[in-house]
């Protein structure tokens, strides 16, 4: 099977990776680049744990091939903080208790950040709508939604 040399930007850093055609973006991030913040949940687009931003839009990285991302800009959960200082959404989700087991958190953070980027002051309904693709089995979502509201205030 053919390998493809792709060039992309990950959290602002240029990367060149040799990937087999059947490698998903998720697998490349975790196993080639050591970015294990992004989680592998269902591999079917139901849980959202693998959410990353591709060219600013939130996508499930389990359902996009790495080779499709040639030339793209990727942001993973590792890219939200700035030199060790956490992004408002990260601060807020810790403050509000929106993290329990933590498995869904990276996907939730990226989906929330993508929402705040396109809509800095979302209503509760808009937050729920934006996070409909992210399952959390622990928190019951209430504190996650409060965290997004709090983060919107902080920005």
């Amino acid at each position: 099977m053919a390998y493809h040399k792709i060039t992309l930007t990950i959290n602002g850093e240029p990367e060149q990776v040799d990937v087999p055609s059947n490698m998903t973006l998720l697998k490349m991030l975790r196993e080639r680049l050591g970015k294990t913040g992004t989680k592998n949940g269902c591999a079917a687009g139901e849980c959202g744990a693998c959410t990353v931003m591709v060219n600013g839009e939130p996508v499930n990285s389990c359902m996009i091939l790495a080779v499709e991302c040639d030339g793209s800009e990727i942001v993973t959960v590792e890219g939200l903080s700035d030199h060790g200082s956490l992004a408002p959404i990260q601060e807020a989700i810790m403050e509000s208790g929106g993290v329990q087991c933590g498995f869904c958190t990276p996907g939730i953070l990226i989906a929330s950040q993508a929402l705040l980027n396109r809509n800095p002051n979302p209503s509760e309904a808009e937050i729920r709508e934006a996070l409909v693709g992210n399952l959390c089995r622990c928190t019951g979502y209430v504190r996650i939604i409060e965290a997004v509201q709090a983060a919107a205030q902080m920005v």
Binding site: G45, P58, M63, G133
Partner: peptide, 8 residues
């Protein structure tokens, strides 16, 4: 579907 799926 979901926001993520509609992105792509």
């Amino acid at each position: 579907a979901t926001t993520q799926i509609r992105s792509r």
